[in-house]
């Protein structure tokens, strides 16, 4: 049987067609084939959240999804959501609050937090902590990240959102 497969998908708004090894996972595909190195590889067993990307509108672990599976799908990465400005307010809050230190977890953290902003706009601190509990950060101790998300939620409620 063939150990490669052809995929057509939309990545950050661009049509992509590639021949990929069947075993290639989504985050390696994005990083190695498309040079979208903003998504990071931290554990490759689905625990750390550094590879979090959006697949058909919802966040997934890039290391637990095969590139072969995204045929026909829409993928968004940190590069994509940055370019559209969708999370500009969240990123601004991260910067202002120093919610990123080494920055390795940050793209995954931003992708996860972006989903929280839409699925639970009324989240309080405990719910933010809960929602982000699958994204590991060794540097910040999390408080600055929680603050940044809280600030963004408040900003959107007050009509500060650009989305």
């Amino acid at each position: 049987m063939d150990e490669t497969t052809v995929i057509s998908c939309t990545v950050n708004g661009e049509a992509v067609e590639e021949i990929v090894p069947a075993r290639l996972n989504l985050v390696d595909f994005l990083r190695e084939k498309l040079d979208l190195t903003g998504s990071h590889v931290g554990c490759e067993h689905g625990v750390c959240g550094a590879c979090t990307v959006r697949l058909d509108g919802v966040i997934v672990r890039g290391c637990l999804t095969l590139a072969a599976q995204v045929n026909g799908a829409t993928i968004e990465t940190i590069e994509g959501v940055t370019a559209t400005g969708e999370v500009a307010d969240l990123q601004e809050a991260f910067l202002a609050r120093n919610a990123a230190q080494c920055g390795f977890c940050t793209p995954g953290m931003v992708m996860s937090a972006a989903e929280l902003l839409t699925v639970n706009p009324d989240a309080g601190r405990a719910e933010i902590r809960d929602f982000l509990s699958g994204n590991y950060c060794r540097c910040t101790g999390y408080q600055a990240i929680i603050d940044a998300v809280e600030t963004t939620l408040a900003g959107r409620k007050n009509g500060g959102s650009t989305t």
Binding site: T37, Q91, F94, T106
Partner: peptide, 21 residues
């Protein structure tokens, strides 16, 4: 004052060693 390099990291535009080809 904000860190000059943080903006880049938050946008996913860092260069970590595995990003080097």
């Amino acid at each position: 004052v904000p860190r000059p390099n943080a903006k880049r990291l938050i946008a996913g535009r860092g260069t970590f060693v595995d990003d080097i080809k």
